[in-house]
Every structure is written in C-alpha cells, then in structure tokens.
C-alpha cells in the first residue's frame, strides 16, 4: 500500500432498505441495475461500486448533484454509514475492522468533519463548541481553552470565543464549524458541502480563506460540493458522481478539457476554461506553423507553453502577431494564432 495514500475506498457499495444484503448478492451474481434493485427488492442504491484514493495533502473534491450519493460516500470514510460491501482504508488502517472503541478513537483524533448545516451545539459557547472534540477525548480544561483559542484564531474569529452560535452570522458559524474540525488537529478533514448554505459572496470569502488555510496546514481534505466552480477552485483532483457512481476522476483541467461522457460535458460546458486550458493544448507545433501574410514570428511575443488562456489573451491583444510559446529551456515549441486562440476559448481544445 502506498504510504502516501491517506484515504482509500475500494468497490464500496451502499444499498438502503430491508433487503440490502440480498440485493447486494443479486448485484454480485446477476449484475442488476439501480432500477431493477428498487423494483425487485424495494432497496435504494446509495452508492455503487465507488473506488478512489486520496493522497497526502491533496484536496479531493467529490462533485455531484443532490441525490447523487456524495454525502453518503463521505460518511463511509468515518463509518457514519456502514457500507454494504467494499473496503475502506484510512491512514493504512482497515476502517471496517476497527472495534467500536477504536473507531471512536479514530474519529476523535484522526478525522475532523465540517457539516453543511454547521451542526453547532446551540447551548454551548463558541469556545465550548470548538473544544468539543477535545472534551470528548478527555483533555484538561486549560488545554481545551488554549487549543480552541488557537483554532479560532486560525479561522479569524479571535474574540468571539465567549459568544453563542446564534449570535453569529451563517458564515461565522461555518468558520466555527471549521475551527472545531481543526481543533483536534486531525490528519484528515471531511467537508460535507460546507459552504452550500451560504450567500455567494460569503461563500467566495470562505473559499479563499480555506485555500489560504490549506496552504498553511496541508491537511488531506475530502471536500463534497454540488458546485463545479467550487470544485475547480479548490480541488487538486475532482471526482464527479452521478446516481451513486463515480463517473470521472481527474484534475480540474482533465475534467474540463476531456469530459468522460455527455453528463460531465453538460456540466463543464458553462465553466470558464480560460484558467484551465493551457497554451500547450491549443498551440500548433512551431515547425508546422505557416505564417500568414504580414506575420513575422521573430517579432512575436514569447510566453511559456504552460500559461493559461487568460494570460494568452492578455498577451495577444497587445500585438498583431501570433504568440510563440517556449519550453522550459526557452526553445520555441509552438505558435498560437489569434484564430486558434478564439477557437480555444470556444471549445477548450
């Protein structure tokens, strides 16, 4: 097992309903589909045959519409929901084989979780909310206060520790939720649509804050969202889910430029590709390019072939010449004409 893999899910299945076990057997032996299982066994397939790895320090986004099973999937990692079949490894340990005590131990020390509806305890002060995981672990009060203070300052909530959750705005409440998840200094962060319930503006702010925080703390994060923009902004890699299945896993660019099927293509269509498509994708090899009339490649601006379209546009508007791209050694490797650039903006190819 790769030491760098923090979370590993292999062929996980979750079927809800009374006859889940029988339905699972039927799936294994006969390969029934979702609709057939519902019809035959009255059971609902939550997630079907999901496998993925999350590497140390990466933010792994799971994106899907509501009902696609993404929230169910994330709850398998800390076994809030028991899978019907499949393997789950967390930090190299087989989660399915943990005793109840060991499982609690793991939840308390290794995993921090942030919820869509904050799930703060209304009768406790912000400090006591943040310190809750430590309290469960039986830490002393002094330690709890120190850690929660620190954790709150990480999310920029200094001075709010003696307030109650209801005195805070939604965005601040979610920051408390994040501080609570960070308080136990977990190895893994599970974030279940943490920003979905917030206003767009505040959501944006929290995303920025979260990006900054991740760069500082390097927490391995499993991030659930229904918003592709958010996934692309935050994710190192993205998994797209549909009807309980993972349709595609890849980097944001792979997803945008190379959608696995029509479903993903539909999604990606309206995503701005300017920052996700790079010069090397749309350039014509330098030696194959035939300059048009009045074009002189020697007067063209030179940019790295790794710049994104956004940057290319900035360069292109300042000149009448096509842009020449270079590799890391400064050699000319390709040309991006204006036609090509426009085409790239339109298709991402």
């Amino acid at each position: 097992m790769n030491n760098d893999v923090v979370i590993e899910l292999n062929n996980a299945w979750k079927i809800f309903g009374e006859h889940a076990e029988e339905a699972m057997q039927a799936v294994n032996s006969e390969g029934l589909g979702k609709a057939e299982i519902l019809e035959k066994y009255g059971a609902v397939v939550g997630i079907a045959d999901c496998s993925f790895n999350v590497r140390r320090g990466e933010i792994f986004c799971i994106m899907g519409l509501s009902g696609s099973g993404k929230s169910t999937l994330v709850r398998h990692v800390n076994r809030l929901i028991e899978p019907t079949a499949g393997e789950i490894f967390l930090l190299g340990e087989d989660v399915m084989k943990l005793s109840p005590t060991a499982l609690r131990e793991m939840r308390a020390k290794r995993i921090g979780m942030v919820f869509q509806h904050m799930a703060l305890l209304p009768h406790r002060s912000v400090r006591d909310n943040v310190a809750y995981p430590l309290e469960i672990r039986g830490e002393s009060k002094a330690r709890r206060w120190d850690v929660s203070q620190h954790s709150l300052s990480l999310v920029g909530l200094d001075g709010f520790e003696d307030r109650f959750p209801r005195e805070l705005s939604g965005g601040m409440q979610q920051r408390v939720g994040l501080a609570r998840a960070l308080a136990s200094d977990p190895d893994v962060l599970l974030m279940d649509e943490p920003f979905s319930a917030l206003d767009p503006l505040i959501r944006r702010q929290l995303q920025d804050q979260f990006i900054a925080l991740s760069e500082q703390l390097h927490k391995t994060t499993l991030f659930i969202t229904h918003d592709l923009d958010e996934a692309i902004r935050l994710g190192t890699r993205i998994a797209i889910m549909k009807d309980g299945r993972i349709v595609q896993i890849g980097t944001p660019e792979e997803i945008v430029t190379n959608p696995a099927d029509d479903y993903v293509r539909d999604f990606v269509q309206n995503i701005s590709k300017l920052k996700l498509v790079f010069a090397h994708t749309i350039q014509v090899p330098f030696n194959q390019y035939k300059p048009m009339e009045g074009e002189d490649l020697s007067r063209s601006p030179r940019v790295s072939q790794d710049v994104d379209l956004d940057y290319l546009i900035d360069v292109a508007v300042k000149t009448t010449q096509p842009t020449v791209t270079t590799d890391e050694n400064g050699n000319d490797v390709g040309v991006v004409s204006k036609d090509r650039l426009l085409q790239g903006i339109r298709d991402g190819k």
Partner: peptide, 19 residues
C-alpha cells in the same frame, strides 16, 4: 514528516491567559 509538523503546530499553541 507531516505528523512532525503537526506536533510543531501543537507546541506553538499559545497559552490562554485567563488572569
């Protein structure tokens, strides 16, 4: 390496002065 760095962060946590 990661674990060591988290320990460092923990030790950095300043004490809250309640005096």
């Amino acid at each position: 390496a990661e674990v060591i760095s988290t320990v460092e962060i923990l030790e950095e946590i300043p004490e809250v002065d309640i005096s």
